[in-house]
């Protein structure tokens, strides 16, 4: 009887060890992943019981694609949050973090002429209008041409920049020509309208 009791106790210890090992391993993996995603701060937060869901920008903020020199790229819109912003802008990310960055939504527009580069929309959610104005001011260069879109809009070549509500908007377009400039303007005005429409709702 005693033999069986001791044997059973020992056998029960085996799954207990397995469970402990599995839990420890999972904890280590979570810490490593969090660390890889966002450094020590993120690694520390991996132990937080109920982490907040990453912020995302609704794709309804994206404007319709105007007919013209570009079309919607086959790549879907891309979403980035605090843990993944490095994957898009690498060492530029900390400047956004300092200004309250919450999320980034990008959309690529492919050129119909393969000799051209294409156009890309960056829609940064900075959390508050003040933060959006601050990162906009940080990055604004001297001598840019003012345009009437969003707040304090300006353009450089065919690229457009403005802030509206809590968003910092860049329509990045390095192509030359009137059709490239017209397309960027239509995208800029379209996203501005979507932002203001969303705010009204």
């Amino acid at each position: 009887m005693r033999t069986r009791a001791v044997g059973a106790a020992l056998l029960l210890l085996l799954p207990a060890v397995a469970v402990w090992v599995a839990l420890e391993g999972r904890s280590d993996e979570a810490t490593a992943r969090a660390s890889e995603a966002g450094g020590p701060a993120a690694a520390a937060s991996a132990n937080t019981p109920t982490p907040a869901a990453p912020a995302t920008i609704p794709e309804a903020r994206l404007p319709p694609v105007p007919a013209g020199a570009y079309c919607l790229a086959s790549d879907p819109p891309e979403h980035y949050d605090e843990a993944t912003l490095y994957e898009k802008i690498d060492g530029a990310a900390p400047a956004y973090f300092e200004r309250g960055f919450r999320a980034l939504l990008t959309q690529t527009y492919a050129p119909r002429d393969p000799e051209r580069f294409g156009c890309e929309l960056f829609l940064y959610d900075m959390g508050t209008p003040a933060n959006a104005a601050a990162i906009f001011a940080d990055q604004r260069g001297a001598g840019a041409a003012a345009v009437a879109v969003g707040r304090e809009g300006y353009r450089a070549g065919a690229s457009w920049f403005f802030h509206a509500e809590r968003y910092y908007v860049i329509v990045l377009n390095a192509d030359e020509g009137a059709d490239a400039e017209r397309f960027s303007e239509q995208i800029a005005r379209g996203v501005d309208a979507r932002i203001r429409g969303g705010a009204a709702r």
Partner: peptide, 12 residues
């Protein structure tokens, strides 16, 4: 000259 490493504007 500014806004590196990505840049983002020809004006930079």
């Amino acid at each position: 000259m500014r806004n590196g490493p990505t840049g983002g504007s020809p004006a930079d």
